[in-house]
Design a protein around this nucleic acid. Structure first.
Length: 340
DNA sequence: AGCCATGTACTACCGGTGCA
DNA sequence: TGCACCGGTAGTACATGGCT
């Protein structure tokens, strides 16, 4: 059977929070590889990723060589997971992530296997795990933003996170890398650009430096909760799949076809409208009107972004945010005026 | 098509300044 | 005095365009 790419990727929090340095391409490969795993799967599946999903726009550069180099590096990547026993003794286990990778320029696919030892951190995750939307993470342009996205998502159920500078630096750029030893450089070249990227996609992360004397020793993040549709958490799932997709086989995760970015965009639109307190019947009407037009989904997400930010940060008080949203949609999508 | 020169963007570091 | 902050700069990678 043809392996699928699912819209969400999961891994255990302990793995997410382990120090790991990845470049941008490696981070994309890992996210897409995790997307090959179904949430209910009992065995690690084969990794099978279209090369065009790793580097979507064929730049003039050598795509094949870039992916090849990233695959080779990934096979050598080790995550160190440190645990302290009840007797206070430290135990460090080093795990490889990927055991095999193959790039076939003919089929245009990268295939491979996860290292078997990593299985407990990727499968049968009952608790203490992090789920991200692959489409969202693939929009991030820098490797630092990828890492921060994973790490902060692992804390978003708590709402805030305080971390020592050195620990954060290790989580974002690894333990062996000695660069960005100066806090201000770490801040201006790593932290601030990464946070800005997350804010640009609508996740309004806040952060403040905490000083010990004059030195910034820790950082406190305030982390608005993600809404990931279909993972059993809010928002409640409602069946408002456009008719053209209703024949799709139901499952916990909708398989993402190679070209099918729609299900996730579709889910994001539902989540967005639910956040803005639009009623289910109105959401159905909107979705029926939008049909399968990806440009319309994107337009809706972009045009309601500021509304959501104002609402969530309470920078503007809305008597009826749902009504405001509906009125906004009527002006953005002329055809909705008579329907809503 | 392949090579080369040039421009641009990014990374990483250094040294000076001002503040507590 | 030690720190954050800031501007400058060297090194590197990549993109672009002209030439053969």
């Amino acid at each position: 059977m043809e392996p699928s790419l699912y819209p969400q990727a999961r891994q255990a929090n302990i793995l997410v929070r382990s120090p790991l340095k990845l470049n941008h391409i490696e981070a994309r490969i890992i996210a897409l590889a995790l997307g090959c795993i179904h949430s209910k799967s009992l065995e690690l599946p084969q990794i099978r990723i279209p090369m065009k999903r790793i580097i979507p726009k064929a730049k003039s550069g050598p795509v094949y060589e870039q992916i090849d180099a990233a695959c080779k590096t990934l096979m050598g990547k080790v995550v160190s997971i440190a645990r302290t026993s009840s007797r206070g003794k430290m135990n460090i286990k080093n795990y490889g992530i990927i055991s095999f990778m193959e790039i076939d320029e003919g089929t245009g696919y990268v295939t491979g296997n996860f290292a078997p030892e990593i299985k407990p951190f990727l499968l049968e995750l009952a608790s203490e795990y992090t789920t991200v939307e692959i489409e969202t993470i693939l929009t991030l342009k820098s490797a630092h933003a990828h890492r921060l996205y994973w790490v902060l998502t692992s804390w978003d159920d708590v709402g805030s996170w305080e971390v020592e500078i050195e620990k954060l630096r290790e989580q974002m750029i690894g333990t062996e890398d000695t660069s960005y030893a100066i806090f201000y450089d770490f801040k201006r070249y790593v932290l601030e650009p990464a946070i800005k990227e997350l804010q640009d996609i609508g996740w309004m992360i806040g952060w403040e430096p905490l000083k010990a004397g004059r030195k910034v020793s820790r950082i406190r993040f305030t982390i608005p909760r993600h809404v990931i549709a279909g993972n059993g958490q809010e928002p409640a799932s409602i069946d408002i799949t456009p008719q053209s997709r209703q024949k799709q086989k139901p499952s916990d995760q909708l398989p993402l076809g190679i070209s099918a970015e729609m299900p996730t965009l579709h889910q994001r639109v539902i989540a967005r409208l639910q956040k803005l307190q639009v009623s289910d019947s109105q959401i159905r009407t909107v979705l029926e009107h939008l049909g399968d037009d990806e440009a319309h989904f994107t337009k809706l997400l972009k045009s309601t972004h500021q509304l959501l930010v104002s609402h969530e940060t309470k920078s503007k008080v809305f008597d009826n945010i749902g009504g405001t949203t509906v009125n906004h949609l009527k002006t953005e999508f002329a055809g909705l005026f008579a329907k809503l």
